[in-house]
Write a protein that binds this DNA or RNA. Structure first.
Lengths: 331, 331
DNA sequence: CTGAAAGCGCTTACAG
DNA sequence: CTGAAAGCGCTTACAG
């Protein structure tokens, strides 16, 4: 690849001047600048990332730490992040956090410490206290998005309010036997997302003086929702409505109801959370949370943190009830 | 962050020796090596990525060029890539190719040319001839995976065989009115995946002396499949079976059939391609193509190309017919 | 086996 | 406004 040196030679200036002309920093005559830019364009010059980061201490790259399993959500968020980063010329370095202990250790102790990024965005990742500390020790801005670790959660949806809104929607339709599928342990004092949504569920029922028709714990997958719903729907006093803590859980519940010969919404109302691509096809009522916009907000927060001229987003992320055909009054 | 200098000082050796001890290159006494490694561990030293790439010309990072829209497939592949890269200490730089011309120009002309990666893996991306040239001009190993651009397709499934297998499965069940949903223009001479699958469809029918019951073109989305199936199923001579070129297209077809009061598989058999996560829930017969393994293969190909000691994968990727309940003999 | 020195390709005070 | 020089933090011939 062409070097600055060659550009400078062609423009008949020093490398220092060429650098200034290309970066826009420092003052120099318009004529010189134009000449250098011409030369750079002619030669197709692009500054070496390694050399400039070494010289400036800035990489123009943002790390994104994700569990690659949560496909739908993270793809949305990632796209949102890329949307904001690309125009400013920032790259994305993707760090995949699996469950493998050795891999995770390497990730936190080595990969992240190579100095490849200016900031890191952490997506919906459950981390140990030690990992959280290691992240902090990086000395980089850390932007949490949908992270269970509250201290890192720079940006978040008010998940208690989400749980409340979903439950109140069902209550408003007249349901009195409402069950919940989530991932929280009901008595968990933690601040992770499933627990917060569960708390909203409990609070809304309490306010209405209605008792819970059950809670089933599941992984945030269709399979998990499927199994949990099977369990809830085969109880003697079965619920007339289910609030699932994610759309994928809700899809699983819809499949389960169908298998048990129960029609949605005639025999069972189902509401999810996310605004998943497929929710329209399942005619699923859900609480949208705009993950693409969340990604953009996270990117903005990261850019603001590294000193780029963008306005930092408000920490509170919006959500919105979208009513479709999967919820109706009980019959 | 700690520098090599500090490690060297603590181990009482020169920076050169410290570097050798840590990299394992060059010969030095076991005692010295141990001392340096100790010091590095004590200080939590990790070499700066920028400095080592500048010195060696190698980045230990692989670029992955994706259209972030194709969520399911790319998440699988990405996870497969990460699985192989992480143990060797390679990072992933993610390049998102959108449809925005300005963004794409920047991507090919600037981002990719910053020298941040040692090789690039291109996923299922349609590129212009100019973009293909720009990629080649990078002078880096390029690994194509599921790329329409045949010249770049280092790794590929035999998509004519896939189309043939799907069609023959339906023929074998006794169907004689079989339609196809894909993205190819039937007369397209190109070598892109949809066209190849369509060619397999045509060939299988020809061999069986059966006429096509129609072709509908659609984007590779559920929505696309939904619309295309609606069209096919409302023709006077409607098909008894549909071969959809992807599982998402097939899901759309299933939704469409349901809306038209046609039951799968009683009134309509549907077969897809992919082995999508959801295919089990839709009881969809499909041609699995193991994207996670494809990602691992692509990573291996990239690693082999940059001189790592891994065996390059065979260029032909496997696929497999998985029969579920969405296909049955016509009634 | 180990060290001093040059070099990777930029950027940025420091002079002028 | 422009250039010479030092420095970012490594690695690797080259000597010894």
């Amino acid at each position: 690849m062409t070097s600055l040196e060659e550009v400078a030679r062609r423009a008949e200036v020093s490398a220092a001047t060429a650098s200034r002309a290309l970066s826009g920093r420092g003052r120099l005559s318009d004529a010189t600048r134009a000449r250098v830019q011409r030369a750079a364009a002619d030669l197709g010059y692009v500054a070496s990332a390694a050399a400039s980061s070494l010289a400036t201490g800035r990489t123009r790259s943002i790390g994104v730490l994700v569990p690659l399993v949560d496909q739908w959500f993270f793809a949305q968020v990632l796209d949102g992040i890329a949307t904001r980063l690309a125009p400013l010329g920032y790259d994305i370095t993707l760090y995949n956090a699996t469950d493998d202990p050795a891999q995770r250790r390497h990730l936190f102790r080595t990969s992240l410490r190579r100095g490849r990024v200016d900031a890191v965005i952490v997506l919906s990742l459950a981390m140990s206290a030690e990992e959280t500390d290691e992240l902090r020790a990086l000395g980089l801005p850390i932007i949490g998005l949908g992270t269970p670790i509250l201290e890192l959660a720079t940006l978040r949806v008010d998940d208690v309010a989400v749980g409340r809104a979903a439950t109140e929607h069902l209550l408003g339709l007249g349901h009195r036997r409402i069950a919940h599928i989530g991932h929280a342990y009901p008595r968990d004092a933690g601040g992770d997302i499933p627990t917060l949504r569960h708390r909203g569920f409990v609070a809304a029922l309490a306010d209405a003086g209605v008792e819970s028709a059950g809670f089933a714990r599941a992984d945030f997958t269709i399979e998990g929702g499927h199994r949990a719903a099977h369990e809830l729907l085969s109880r003697s006093e079965r619920p007339t409505a289910i609030f699932a803590a994610s759309d994928e859980l809700a899809f699983g519940a819809v499949f389960a109801a169908r298998e048990l010969g129960q029609e949605v919404p005639r025999d069972l109302s189902v509401i999810g959370v996310d605004g998943h691509d497929l929710s329209g096809f399942f005619a699923l009522t859900t609480i949208e949370q705009f993950p693409h916009a969340q990604g953009m907000a996270a990117a903005d927060a990261a850019l603001a943190a590294v000193g780029e001229d963008v306005t930092a987003p408000a920490p509170a992320l919006p959500f919105e009830l979208v009513v479709r055909a999967s919820t109706a009054p009980p019959t």
